[in-house]
Write a protein that binds this DNA or RNA. Structure first.
Lengths: 119, 119
DNA sequence: ATAACATTTAGCACATAAGCTAATTAATTA
DNA sequence: TAATTAATTAGCTTATGTGCTAAATGTTAT
């Protein structure tokens, strides 16, 4: 899950289209194939590039393999971009929900913390 | 300045390096060339790809051509990514500065407004 | 076991992209 | 105007990437 791999993967139009298709949830490979005029193996390869980049994850359910976005990679990419912008335009995570004082041990994971230091 | 061109431009390592070099301000082409082991024409071409994508702008000062980031393209890209994330992880613009009531005609330009609708 | 379907892998053809050197354009100075 | 420096464009070679078809793999059902 490097910026190198993520940005390269995002650089292709078909792969961006796949990413957008998965925006609202997982989808079996065959459903993804259906939305392209390309042959299935071509799209299968795009899927594997996305997977190697860490942009998607898969789970098998019977015969079907479901693809879903792994948001962390997209967040990492957004953070890389954010690091290039001055504070005025800077993109930042939305204001965190109020911490529940009752359960202090359960930290809400902030996906930005994980990557901000990396770049 | 399309997502197509921007993401393709960002997909190359040398070009990302150039982008990072320009993070804190403009720089003449020759200074950029110096930081690479590649021949100047090779980097010059990368610069033109970045320019065509709208990621950098140039100004000539005498013999030198200064390159600088055009933040709008990066913001557009960040917004595309943002649109793929659920509200929880969503990246958003930092809270806007308080509007100066004394000078209501001078709107602080919000670079996000310009692109959010596009994706 | 084999048939049927979903998906990936292999191997090849073609297009695009990145690198180089040489030549050109543009501005400055002698 | 000629020389010098900055930068780009032209033309070429090679590497990488994307597409295809055919074959292989994996799972389920008969």
């Amino acid at each position: 899950m490097t910026i190198e791999a993520i940005s390269k993967a995002i650089g292709d139009e078909s792969r961006r289209k796949i990413i957008e298709m998965l925006k609202d949830g997982e989808m079996p490979a065959s459903s993804i194939f259906d939305q392209f005029d390309y042959a299935a193996p071509t799209i299968s390869r795009h899927l594997s590039v996305l997977k190697e980049a860490g942009i998607v994850i898969t789970r098998r359910k019977g015969v079907y393999i479901y693809y879903a976005l792994d948001k962390e990679a997209l967040v990492a990419m957004a953070n890389w971009l954010s690091s290039l912008l001055p504070p005025t335009n800077q993109v930042v995570k939305a204001a965190p929900k109020e911490r529940v004082a009752r359960a202090p041990k359960v930290k809400t994971e902030n996906p930005f913390d994980k990557f901000q230091s990396e770049f």
